[in-house]
Design a protein around this nucleic acid. Sequence first.
RNA 1: GCCCUGGUAGUCCAAUCGGCAGAGACAAGCGACUUAAAAUCGCUCCGGUGUGGGUUCGAAUCCCACCCAGGGCACCA
Length: 908
Amino acid sequence: MTRSEPADYNEANAQAWGMCMTDRYDFRVIEPKWQARWEAESTFRADDESDRPRYYVLEMFPYPSGAGLSVGHCKNYAPADAYCRYKSMKGFEVLHPMGWDAFGQPAENEAIKRRRHPREMVPEYAANYRRTLKLIGASYDWSREINSSEPEYYRWTQWFFLLLYKRGLAYRATAPINWCPTCKTGLANEEVKEGRCWRCDTPVTKRPLPQWYFRITAYAERLLAGIESLDWPTGIKLQQREWIGRSEGADVDFPIIGDPRKIRVFTTRPDTLWGATFMVLAPEHPLVNDLTTPEHRANVDDYIQRAMSATEIERMSVDRPKTGVFTGAYARNPVNGEAIPIWIADYVLMGYGTGAIMAVPAHDQRDFEFARKYGIPIELVYTMVGGPQDGDSMAQALPDGGYMRDFTPKPEALTPKSPFAGRANSVETVREVIAWLEEHGVGEGRVNYRLRDWLISRQRYWGAPIPIVHCPSCGEVPVPEGDLPVLLPDVDEYQPSGTGESPLATIPEFVNTPCPSCGQPARRETDTMGGFACSSWYFLRFADPHNSEAFADRAKIDAWLPVDMYTGGAEHAVMHLLYARFWTMGMHDAGLVGFDEPFPRLRSQGAMLAYTPGRAPRIDEQSDSDEDGDQIVDWIPLKPEEIATFPPDQIIWRWARMSKSKGNVVSPDAVVEKFGADSLRVFEMFVAPFEDNVRWNDEGVAGSLRFLQRLWRWMAPRIPQVRAEAPQTSSGAAETDADRAIRRKLHQTIRKVTDDIEGFRFNTAIAAIMELVNDLYLWSPTDVSGSHAERPANPGLLREIVTCLTLMVAPFAPHLADELWERLGHSGSTYRAAWPNWDPAIAADEEITIVVQVNGKLRDRLSVPPDTDDDHVKERALASAKVAEATAGKTVRKIVYVPGRLVNIVVG
RNA sequence: GCCCUGGUAGUCCAAUCGGCAGAGACAAGCGACUUAAAAUCGCUCCGGUGUGGGUUCGAAUCCCACCCAGGGCACCA
């Protein structure tokens, strides 16, 4: 947060330099100059024909909002850009593209709010983003810019829809879907967070609608297995694993008494079948209506009614007491022949497994609570020594463990004797029970996934129309490829209707079309695709963005993809990243691409936090949140217009993620104006590791500017000296100890910076350069004016230092580096210059410090050549006076020597 | 409730394999330069790693328990 001091550092600097105006670090001149040069020379254009090895760096493409780019976005863009520049200098042909995730609700909502059409608004906002990205010196190949809302792009989104459709991976079905009453559209499961819409926080309701789905569940196993090989943050891999939610168990069929049908349940614990004393169906289960007996009809209907009207939040609340009603029907437990009652309860979810469970109250806490409440018998399957021996004495379900009881079977039982009596409660027993069930034809092993199919339909205007025609005689007919794109009609009114119908449904010219198959009048599908469809393949388009014959040329895809380094926010851990993986697997199986993981390497940047004024919520603002004590809203950011009028003593300041909605966004424009783009870049990389959240502060950027000025002040006056000398004058010069030390430091720094950039550790890379600069001032002091920069005794060494330092700082402060590079007499940008190498022999320490400990406590230090042999080091350690003092009168019991590090003398 | 990440100086952060706790910066202070201030250059300050145990010659690092912060999941049978 900006504290105060609108000090103009650059002006102050100019004064300090007085007469030396031409040599001062003037970012206001340097930065526009190089940005113009890069643009004019197409420095960052990725050459498809290059014979260099390829490297593809991609940041998740943004939705260009009206608020513009913030310094928070730069937390990702600046380091990714530094990485690109580094890779280019390492000899790679780098593809670094940018585009706009322009379809979808954020753009549409903003357009509605501002009463402008998104078609004209999006390019304007995109232009502003592009301007800001250029302002911070980002090295994008703008000739590859794409916009997902343009027909030449979404034509291929539709093409992929049809591809998935033809491969049986897209289908239409009617089911109760997640519906956001505010956004007035259906949502995918991934877009519901804690029962609320991920965009607007509105509690989600259920609504039965015909919708399009992608059959992502068909790839559940591959999506899960593929995670293993990915170089991604462990947290994101874990989230994907949990979202897919694999569990092993069995399907078991329970015959209904007095009905020929059976109820199928999924269970992970088929070994507890002997304790299943009732069954529970989800209220939406299709058999409920048929099973309910007349005397229970009213109760059941009433319960279903209430369950359907509850919001997801109410229904999913864990702490809520279990409720349910008896249907009047009974099923037979297939293993022991008992007749068990069939209930319905809303703690059973229609969307998971079969929507029906066998309830084993003795071994499942939820079933236990339910059984206790409704007086249903509790039958132990496993018992433990010292544990409860019958259901009546239990206070809660039994934890895992114990051994299986023997049971007295009924005549209807599957086998006359209980076959597993005495078996341990273990996964082996579960496995054997499954085999036994299969043998007797009452169940089969099954793997179940939590993942559900991806709901892609949106009842919104601003998206790619789903390319399907509904014909009264032919049914669903895909639009022929030659007729793509199905253009989104240009209309004035496109507000979401809220009826469950897309706004497109009200446009007869769009809806009415002849059937592509039979030519009879038919209706177009009016739903559009959610924005995640566009972002599931955009990384391919960048390889060949202007292709009008195909989504991209295969040879170019093979050359550039998969993406070598992908960066973006962790909020897309399960949405975009899972969808894009699925889509890629679909394409791979269709033979369109040669890989099935699009992003082998991923890094997630931390958020930029701003110090944000807020207030306590009013009573009425808490109402929808806190029934169960969670989800309490305790802080609401103040709108910019409220701050002036709000009582200052009631303002609560907090660090909050920068976002347009909180009104706490710091724009790069102001920062660049005041400190320069290079300072902003250096600050964002230096302040913390890439993955960490950062609290924005101007002081830090000022510090980065000071560092760049310091570096410049040392370098600039020496460049003329370097240029004046012939390149090869170093050989004869005698090397002093100080010269050798600084050269060693230089090579150690190159090594450190190289390793750190490879490992995405930009903060420590910059710290290493700072260290080198500090050492340079000690080696060869410079005063304020630069006039006292002495003529070096060893011009070759000076040339080496100046050259390597310029190149090393280039990824972080490219404008400054290119300016120095030019002054050094080179033409062109550092972007195509070679990254410096280090010489291990020069970087090697001449002397190393060995720490001498006595009983683990530091007592002395020895300085020895690195190749000194072990015994000699130990001898010298024992010879130390300080050691003698510490060991006086004690016996040496042991000497631990860690080569090159320490000697620990254990005495007692 | 469960899972994951992380707690190091007044602040942000380093410490690569279990081996000197401090690289770098911010802030503060002092000195030099200056008529003065700013800027600059140099120097200085402070902590023993959230808490309590354990393993080890040796723990910021490994193990156990707890506390705090951030994130994820949450009736998934």
